[in-house]
Design a protein around this nucleic acid. Structure first.
Lengths: 369, 369
DNA sequence: GTTTATTTTGTATGCGCTTACATTTATTTA
DNA sequence: TAAATAAATGTAAGCGCATACAAAATAAAC
C-alpha cells in the first residue's frame, strides 16, 4: 500500500517536472544564465550589463530597465568568482574568533556580520580555539580565499600575519581590545583600564583580602591586560596578592566553580573574588550558591563583560558592561570605510561602564565559618 | 618644520623602496606571484604547477619538489577566484543560523566549521534573526557568492530556497531537526519525540497541573515541534492545557523570568513548568530563586538543550541533552561527502538523552502560598 | 632493440566577468 | 545649425587558473 503510494507520488512528480521543462524552454537545465545571455536578451553589450549591475547611474534609464527586465526574466545571477577575478575584489571579509562557546563574542560578531551584510559584504568565519598558531593558519586560508579585509580578536597575534596582510595590502582591524600606542588599527575597549574599576570599588568598600579568578593569560592579551589591571589597581591601594590567590583557568562555568571552591577552602579565604570575566564569575557565584555561602555578605564576587545572564542571577552580578554590538558595528564600519578608499580613525575606543549590582558589598568582619 | 620632516620621510621611503626593488627583482612590489611565475621558476608549464597543487601524485617526484620549492620561494598563493572560476568550485560552504545570541548554536556551528576546515572548506556565515524572509535573501547572497553547499537550521524554509538550490544543483542539509518523512536531507534530532520525555516523566511523578513556556513557534519548526510534543505527551495522560497555561515568548532569560512570574501569580499556579529550551528554563529558575519559590518542592521546572549552564544552576536543571557537536560534525560530513560525489544517508538522527537533575520532583500537595 | 602500452608533461582554450579605450549618441554652446 | 563638449555604449583584452587534448618521455612486452 505504502509502496504504491510512493510510486504514485514519484510518478506525479515526474509529470510535473516534465511539464515544467517543456513549457519553460527559456533556460536549458542546469545552465545558469550568463552576462552574455542577458546582453543578448536586452540587445546590449555585456559591458552595459556589467554597468547596470555595478554603476546603474551610468546607464540611461530606458536601457537600464530593459537590462533589469532581462536579468529578472533569465534569473541571472552574477558569478562571484568571475567578478572577483576580474575586479580583484571578493566582497568577502574574513574573521577569526577564539570560540563561539561563550557568549562574549556573540553580540559583537552578530553586529559585525549585520553591518557587513548591509554593505554587500559577506563574512567568512573561522574559529581558532584561543590558539595563535591556529589563528595564523586560518588567516593564511582566509587570505587564500581572497578576503578583502580581515578582523582579528585582540592585539596579540603572530607577527607573520601582518607581513602576509601588508604584502597583499589587505586592510585589517583588531577588536575586543584598544590601545592608544598600537601601530595597528583597533576598535575596542581598554581591558587594562576597565579592569581597574571593580577592584577600586571594592577597596573603597573596605575590602583588603582579594583573590582573582582569571582566564588563561598566555597568548591572550585581553585576559592578560585585565589581570594586570586588577593587580595594579590593588597595588595602588597597597595590596599585593599572594601567588595562590590568583587562579588561572579555562573559560567555563565549571572552572569558575572549582576555582571559587579552592579559594574559599583556603585558610585565609578572601572577602572578594575578582573574576576577569562573567562566565567565571557566574561559576563562582553558583558555587557559593550550592555550598551555602552568601553573596555578598560572606564574599563579594565581581565579573567582567556583562553577559545577558549576569543581571539575572541571584544576586545579580556586579560587572563591567561592554557595548559589544556597537563595537562589532564600528569594527565592520572601519573595514568598509577602508575598502571604500576612506581613511577612518585607526584607533577607536568604545566606552565601558561599571555596573554595580548585588554580588558586591562591604566585607564580612570575621573569617568564614 | 613638520613639512620638512615629511619630505625627508618620504625621501627616505623612496630610497628604501628603490633599494628593495633593485635588489629583489624577483618580485615586483605588491604583485603576488602567479602560477606562471612559479612555472617559469621551476622550468615547467603552468599545467604542471596546477597539478602539483591539485593532484600532486600525478607529477613525478623530482619535478614536484622543484615546483614546491619554487612555490615556497615565491610565496605563491593560488588565487581563489581564478581557481573557482576555472574549476567551478568555490570551496566555500554557506550557513544561515538564526542567531549567535544564545548558546544552542555555538557548539554545533563550531564543530561544523572545524570539520569543514579540516576538509579544506571555508565557512560563510550569515544570521537570519529567526526571520524566514531574511533567510531567503541570505541564501540568495550565499548562492551568488558561489557556495558549493549550504546548511540551514530547521526544516521550515521558504520554498523558493529549494528552487534556487536545485537550479544550481547545490547540495544542502537541514540541521537541529530530524524527520523521517522529509524529502530534504537532514541531520539532527526529533524535536517532537524528544519533547515528550520530560512531560511524561513529570506525569509519572504525579504532576497534573502544567504550564508551558515556549519560544515563538511561528515560522520555527523546532519550537513548534517541541510545543506539540509536550502537549501531545500530556494529552496521552489525559491532560489538556488551558490557553493561558501556554506562554510563547522571545528567546531570552528575561522573557523566561517574566513568563514564570506570570504563571506563578495565576489563581491556579502549575506544579510543573515545561520550558521548550534551557534559556527560558533558566529564566524561570532564576525568577523562582529571586522570588523565594523553592524548586522543585514548590514547582518543578524542566528545560531542553542542556546548555553548559544548566547543570551548574542550583538546583541543576532537568533537561534534554542534545549532542550538538556530533550533529554539527555530521552535518558537515554529509555535505563533504555529497561534494565528493558520494551519496551519504540523507536523513541522519542523533540520539538525545533525558537528563534528570534537581529542578524536577514530586508535585507539591497544596496550592502555592 | 622494437613495438606497444603507460605515465608524465605541455599547449592552448575558456571559465564569466570588469574595464580601458574607442566609438557612437545626446547635449550644450556659439 | 554647426561645432564642441559631454554622456552613453560598444569593443576587446585580459584577470589567473583548470583541463581536454596532444605530445613527449618512460616502462612494459615481445
Amino acid at each position: 500500500m505504502v509502496f504504491f503510494c510512493m510510486r504514485l507520488h514519484f510518478y506525479l512528480c515526474t509529470i510535473h517536472h516534465d511539464f515544467k521543462t517543456t513549457t519553460t524552454i527559456v533556460n536549458p537545465p542546469n545552465k545558469p544564465a550568463t552576462q552574455g545571455d542577458v546582453a543578448k536578451a536586452a540587445g546590449v553589450s555585456t559591458a552595459t550589463v556589467s554597468r547596470v549591475i555595478n554603476q546603474p547611474e551610468s546607464v540611461r534609464i530606458g536601457v537600464r530597465q530593459r537590462v533589469q527586465e532581462a536579468i529578472a526574466e533569465l534569473q541571472y545571477v552574477a558569478d562571484a568568482a568571475a567578478r572577483a577575478l576580474a575586479s580583484k575584489r571578493s566582497r568577502c571579509i574574513g574573521a577569526v574568533i577564539p570560540t563561539f562557546a561563550n557568549a562574549i563574542f556573540a553580540d559583537g560578531i552578530e553586529a559585525f556580520e549585520a553591518t557587513l551584510n548591509q554593505a554587500g559584504l559577506s563574512l567568512m568565519l573561522t574559529i581558532s580555539g584561543y590558539n595563535l598558531d591556529n589563528e595564523l593558519s586560518q588567516v593564511r586560508t582566509l587570505i587564500e580565499r581572497g578576503v578583502d579585509a580581515l578582523m582579528l580578536v585582540g592585539l596579540n597575534h603572530d607577527p607573520s600575519i601582518y607581513l602576509l596582510l601588508q604584502q597583499r595590502n589587505i586592510p585589517y582591524v583588531h577588536t575586543w581590545a584598544f590601545r592608544n600606542d598600537t601601530p595597528h588599527p583597533c576598535v575596542g575597549f581598554d581591558n587594562y583600564a576597565a579592569a581597574k574599576q571593580l577592584p577600586l570599588h571594592l577597596t573603597s568598600l573596605g575590602h583588603r583580602e582579594f583573590a582573582i579568578v582569571s582566564g588563561i593569560s598566555k597568548g591572550n592579551d585581553r585576559v592578560y591586560d585585565r589581570l594586570q589591571g586588577i593587580q595594579d589597581a590593588l597595588s595602588t591601594q597597597g595590596i599585593v596578592l599572594a601567588r595562590n590567590a590568583i587562579i588561572e583557568c579555562v573559560y567555563n562555568i565549571e572552572a569558575g566553580r572549582m576555582a571559587c571552591r579552592q579559594l574559599l577552602q583556603s585558610p585565609t579565604p578572601p572577602t572578594a573574588i575578582l573574576c576577569s570575566n562573567d562566565v567565571l564569575a557566574t561559576g563562582a557565584l553558583l558555587e557559593c550558591q550550592s555550598s551555602g555561602i552568601e553573596v555578598p555578605t560572606q564574599v563579594s564576587i565581581a565579573g567582567f563583560d556583562d553577559l545577558a545572564l549576569s543581571a539575572n542571577l541571584t544576586p545579580s552580578l556586579s560587572t563591567i558592561h561592554i557595548p559589544f554590538k556597537l563595537m562589532g558595528h564600528k569594527a565592520a564600519q572601519y573595514l568598509i570605510d577602508r575598502l571604500s578608499g576612506a581613511t577612518p580613525q585607526p584607533q577607536q575606543q568604545v566606552e565601558v561602564e561599571l555596573r554595580l549590582r548585588n554580588s558586591t558589598g562591604i566585607p564580612r568582619l570575621s573569617t568564614l565559618a
